[in-house]
Write a protein that binds this DNA or RNA. Structure first.
Length: 595
RNA sequence: GAUUCCAUAGCUCAGCUGGAUAGAGCACAAGUUUUCUAAACUUGCGGUCAUUGGUUCGAAUCCAAUUGGGAUCACCA
């Protein structure tokens, strides 16, 4: 049982014994470092039952805890603060107890809750950009965190593979592509298709301008431009199953998928189940009938169907157009129902930017009103947008930061810095390149995940992402130091090291802090899982690495004179290494063995 | 205009469920390497926690208003 829980239970007991009252809400917090102690109980809330001064109350509770819990070595009281000192033996026992036990348990119980995590959700008309990078890293990391917290996670992606956007790329390619392919041009498939999306936009703008000059309003021009009409015709052809259109569509999408696969692979993300909008966009229509029958939905005179959410503080939302075709919402309703039927999930988490907060509010509400019990388990992991110093990314202004380019830049920077520092010496070319990827992508991932997902984040392309301070390379570096120690120790002590491990009676302050940090791994994991926040893990592992860095600097490990202490410190370091590696794994970040 | 989210050091961020003197990193200044990997360590500088009021023994944290910023408010996705 963990120490906070033990203390809490004993405190409840103490309050009952001392003052005859039961108070359930007891919270121990970390003691402020300026006072001696490990955990602190604030006693102000108990004054009304103790009817004594804060100091007296704290002393009475302190005495009770000290005489009833072996773990409590001593305590001190400052005003209404009861600072508890936990015995070193407790921390040492904890360290012993985790010997050989991994920080992440990969074995799931058979009744582990099923959690679906949807993330990525790209459009197939252009390559992935910075915004997708945050989305993918978040979705992947949250999946890993939920898995480690004991859930059966199904990572899922819904590919937006149909619609007017891809028709624009298709049309432009037909008109100006001259038969170009990824093979013929050497351009990555998603980028090639994106190139034609841009081409469409350019010509389309030009047409609008011409029409406006001829006296049309901007709205008229946007609708009447021949290119737009052609694109819409193409979409119509697609929906009516025209073979040539479908063939071109399939061909260009396959280019894009190949490109996406490379990007996903480089990012280190993957999916268990991929949905395609072309297969799901008709879903949900039958549900509309059901909703109408239940009276949840209503039909307008023009035959369109809507739900009135004004009673819930929202608006009327259309669910079916007058012509009977479905909208985004219809489709999402259908897809959710399909997923619920297929996977019987406990939770379904949508990793989607906060600009869609309203959409998901409506979606969840609609499903609840339809009476689906599982709708209670729907959650919108709403994350803030990535902004550039000049504001939002805008494709038409060319301020979009491309995912592939960004990753490559990070790797290149890592290569340059590594070479400058002589870190690549003695490595084979393959190993060196692997190292640059580990460091460069690590820095990128950590940069994006250390910020609270809910908050918007700033990315300045002019200032490349740092490799010093609160960064992945710093954490990786400390992991590497530990591995170097262990390698050296193995040469010196061989296998007998493990056998003759003896724990000391007392700990250095830093050692105690480090063990407490290790002890807090599970707390952080739980918190990260509850809040769907990789940032919690990022902060945790940085703290741990920083503490270790100081320890490493101040305390000799292999240079220590007493062999028992060497082995103990090595053991502690190794355990810290495990915790770092496990934490980084939760973030989707690799750690190198040397750097 | 309505709804909603946000505002902490020069910059980027922690600080969630109210607690003791608000913390990191970067930047800036100074120092540390014959000693386990210096992508490191130490010290300094830097704050009216947007403003005002309220609740409380106690507020960066909770509530309200104000100011400033973002997002959303389609029979687009």
């Amino acid at each position: 049982m963990n120490i906070e829980k033990k203390l809490t239970e004993k405190t409840i007991e103490a309050l009952k014994a001392l003052y005859g009252t039961v108070i359930e809400k007891i919270v121990f917090e970390k003691t402020n470092p300026i006072f001696p102690g490990d955990l602190t109980l604030v006693v102000f809330n108990f004054l009304k039952i103790s009817k004594k001064k804060p100091e007296e109350t704290a002393v009475e509770i302190g005495n009770y805890l000290k005489s009833n819990l072996v773990e409590v070595l001593d305590f001190n009281v400052v005003k209404g603060f009861l600072n508890i000192i936990i015995a070193d033996s407790f921390w040492l026992n904890y360290l012993k107890s985790i010997n050989g036990k991994p920080f992440i348990n990969n074995e799931l119980s058979t009744d582990a809750p099923i959690v679906m995590v949807e993330y990525s959700s790209p459009n197939t008309n252009k390559p992935l950009h910075l915004g997708h990078v945050r989305n993918n890293l978040l979705g992947y990391s949250v999946s890993e965190i939920l898995k480690a917290a004991g859930n059966k996670v199904i990572k899922t992606n819904i590919v937006n593979d149909r619609g007017i956007h891809i028709c624009k790329s298709m049309l432009a390619w037909q008109k100006w592509g001259k038969g170009e392919t990824p093979e013929s041009t050497g351009i990555k498939g998603d980028h090639l298709v994106g190139k034609y999306y841009v081409a469409f936009d350019k010509h389309y703008k030009h047409e609008i301008e011409t029409l406006v000059n001829k006296g049309k309003t901007k709205e008229e021009a946007e609708k009447q431009a021949p290119l737009m009409r052609e694109a819409q015709q193409m979409l119509f052809n697609w929906e009516s199953g025209d073979t040539a259109t479908l063939e071109l569509w399939g061909r260009m999408n396959s280019w894009v998928y190949k490109g996406f696969d490379e990007t996903y692979k480089m990012l280190g993300v993957d999916f268990d189940k991929i949905y395609y909008e072309s297969e799901t966009y008709l879903l949900g229509k039958s549900t509309i009938e059901e909703g109408l029958a239940k009276g949840v939905f209503k039909r307008r005179v023009d035959n369109s169907v809507f739900i009135d959410l004004t009673g819930d503080g929202l608006d009327e939302k259309t669910l079916l157009r007058a012509d009977g075709t479905s909208v985004y919402m219809t489709q999402d309703i259908g897809t959710a129902i399909q997923r619920a039927e297929e996977e019987h999930f406990e939770k379904l988490i949508y990793t989607v930017a906060n600009e869609q907060d309203y959409h998901f509010k409506v979606l969840f509400l609609v499903l609840k009103k339809l009476g689906y019990k599982w709708a209670e388990g729907l959650y919108h992991l709403s994350y803030g947008m990535v902004e550039l110093p000049e504001g939002k990314m805008k494709s038409r202004e060319g301020t979009v930061v491309d995912a592939d380019e960004l990753m490559q830049e990070m790797i290149d920077t890592a290569a340059v810095t590594s070479k400058e520092l002589g870190k690549a010496e003695g490595l084979s070319k393959e190993d060196a390149e692997k190292l640059y990827r580990t460091i460069g992508l690590g820095a990128l991932k950590y940069f994006m995940l250390k910020v609270d997902p809910k908050k918007k984040m700033l990315f300045n392309p002019a200032e490349s992402i740092d490799f010093n301070g609160n960064t992945a390379p710093f954490i990786q570096f400390n992991y590497v130091r530990i591995q170097a120690l262990l390698r050296k120790a193995k040469e010196t002590f061989g296998l007998e090291g493990k056998k003759s491990l003896i724990f000391p009676d007392n700990l250095l302050p830093k050692e105690k802090e480090l063990i407490i940090k290790l002890y807090n791994f599970n707390t952080s994991l739980t918190q990260a899982a509850i809040e769907y926040s990789p940032a919690v893990i990022a902060n945790y592992v940085y703290d741990l690495a920083k503490e270790f860095s100081q320890y490493y600097h101040d305390v000799p490990i292999l240079k220590e004179e007493q062999k028992d202490l060497i082995l103990f410190r090595l053991h502690l370091s190794q355990t810290i290494g495990f915790a770092i590696k496990a934490s980084m794994q939760l973030l989707g970040i690799d750690v190198p063995e040397r750097m």
